[in-house]
């Protein structure tokens, strides 16, 4: 029998594509570093999403083309951006007033762990003794909802979705949707519901790689793009 560890999982692009489907037309969205950053490339046609970045810019354009890099035009991940009409600049206090004040509709973040009640732990690995919180705690607390986009298990194959986080928390009960390379899981603050599984995966297999109890949705389906 094929081991679950070796079984093919979804690539990051597909995860990003799946998250992109969740962004409402006209919404203000903050994308974290990593897989979340890729989401902007997959927003369905006809939908307009305004990107906010903690570096102090609203309505971010696409990544800058080679040769067009400008140190005065970056996103929070330090990537260079293309200038676009309708972008605006502001200072850090205002950037975070937008976040903390609930003016940013959706945040997409990566994470080390997510708990059964939607707690997020993404800023510090205890073994390092020091961590970069950056804007993560503000985003977790302030945005109207956090979508987590992450691999289902860590590099040792351990579940990243757990009953209770063992790493230092970023925010409590802030995650409402988890998109991994195996599944789409809803968090309602009480527990987790498995909504979609990657092609070739069964709900039982996903449960085996998950550290918290999953309720299987009555209309469970394959990843929907």
């Amino acid at each position: 029998m094929e081991s679950l560890a070796d079984k093919e999982r979804l690539p990051r692009e597909i995860m990003a594509m799946r998250v992109a489907k969740e962004l409402p037309d006209g919404s203000y969205v903050n994308l974290g570093i990593g897989i979340p950053t890729m989401v902007s490339s997959f927003v369905p046609e006809g939908r307009t999403v305004f990107y906010h970045s903690e570096s102090g810019i609203l309505n971010c354009g696409p990544l800058a083309e080679e040769g067009n890099e400008d140190i005065d035009l970056i996103n929070a991940g330090g990537q260079y951006l293309e200038p676009v009409g309708g972008m605006s600049f502001f200072d850090s206090a205002e950037a975070f007033a937008m976040i903390r004040g609930g003016h940013v509709d959706v945040t997409v973040l990566g994470s080390h762990q997510v708990s059964a009640t939607g707690d997020l732990a993404n800023w510090m690995l205890p073994q390092r003794g020091v961590g970069n919180v950056g804007g993560a705690m503000d985003l977790a607390t302030g945005a109207s909802g956090v979508i987590v986009a992450m691999e289902h298990t860590d590099r040792n194959g351990e579940p990243k979705i757990v009953q209770e986080c063992t790493f230092p928390l970023t925010g409590k009960g802030c995650v409402y949707l988890i998109v991994t390379d195996l599944a789409v899981i809803e968090c309602d603050g009480q527990g987790l519901t498995l909504k979609e599984v990657a092609p070739g995966w069964t709900p039982e297999e996903v449960q085996q790689l998950t550290g918290a109890k999953l309720t299987i949705s009555p209309d469970i389906r394959e990843f929907e793009l």
Binding site: S92, A93, I99, V133
Partner: peptide
């Protein structure tokens, strides 16, 4: 020494 402060809190503490 190090004091880690969330970025938005750092900005608001300065403001």
């Amino acid at each position: 020494e190090l004091e880690v402060v969330p970025q938005g809190t750092l900005a608001e503490r300065l403001r």
